[in-house]
């Protein structure tokens, strides 16, 4: 019988949930600004985008602080083992009804693919989006700040980052359905508890 484990603490759940909402909001308003569709209007999109960006920035500062004080940042260190097994599971095992090869636990809650993806997210994509986003936000003050850049390059990098976020979002949401039951992972990130496939190693 599978046992229930507490996978995500209250802060992590709050953080993840708020971050998800903000990123969806940033994506929608961002592509409205970009002119891809007309939904709430350019003006409101700009203001929502900027407000969401500031809130996200505040949240991320908190999250970084939390990760370092709790030591949880180690969760994202690249794993050396189980990579092959994990890849094989998603390509083959999952269709055969095999259990996930990676035992989730409070101490090791991310499988090697997750570790790799989230590390990429945290070290590359978020910084890219923040740096270009804040450069964009303060483009009017570049001369005072001594920054020489051109808005077009900044905007294009920011747009490229936005596409990467969407791709991540699509795959990420899909993978949440690959738990024991399609909603198992979703329940876990909302409630904190997940039925472990295997007893903790």
């Amino acid at each position: 019988m599978a046992e229930k484990i507490l996978l995500y603490t209250r802060f992590e759940r709050f953080w993840h949930c708020t971050q998800a909402i903000l990123i969806v909001l940033l994506g929608i308003t961002g592509f409205e600004i970009h002119g891809s569709f007309h939904f709430i209007g350019f003006e409101r999109a700009v203001h929502l985008h900027d407000d969401a960006a500031w809130i996200l920035a505040g949240l991320v500062v908190f999250a970084i602080f939390w990760h370092f004080t709790t030591g949880e940042w180690r969760q994202y260190l690249p794993a050396r083992d189980m990579i092959r097994e994990t890849v094989r599971f998603y390509l083959v095992g999952i269709f055969r009804g095999e259990p996930h090869p990676f035992p989730k636990s409070r101490a090791r809650k991310l499988n090697p693919l997750q570790r790799f993806t989230y590390l990429f997210l945290k070290l590359i994509l978020f910084p890219l989006q923040f740096v270009t986003g804040f450069l964009y936000l303060f483009s009017n003050d570049w001369p005072n700040l001594g920054i020489t850049a051109d808005l077009e390059s900044v905007a294009l990098l920011h747009t490229a980052g936005a596409f990467a976020f969407i791709v991540f979002f699509v795959v990420h949401v899909y993978l949440t359905t690959t738990g024991k039951t399609p909603l198992a992972h979703i329940k876990a990130i909302l409630t904190g508890w997940e039925e472990a496939d295997r007893p903790p190693a």
Partner: peptide
């Protein structure tokens, strides 16, 4: 913003 974009980037992105 909203007027300009890179068509190549948009095509690749989508």
């Amino acid at each position: 913003p909203g007027r300009d974009r890179s068509r190549t980037l948009d095509t690749a992105g989508w």
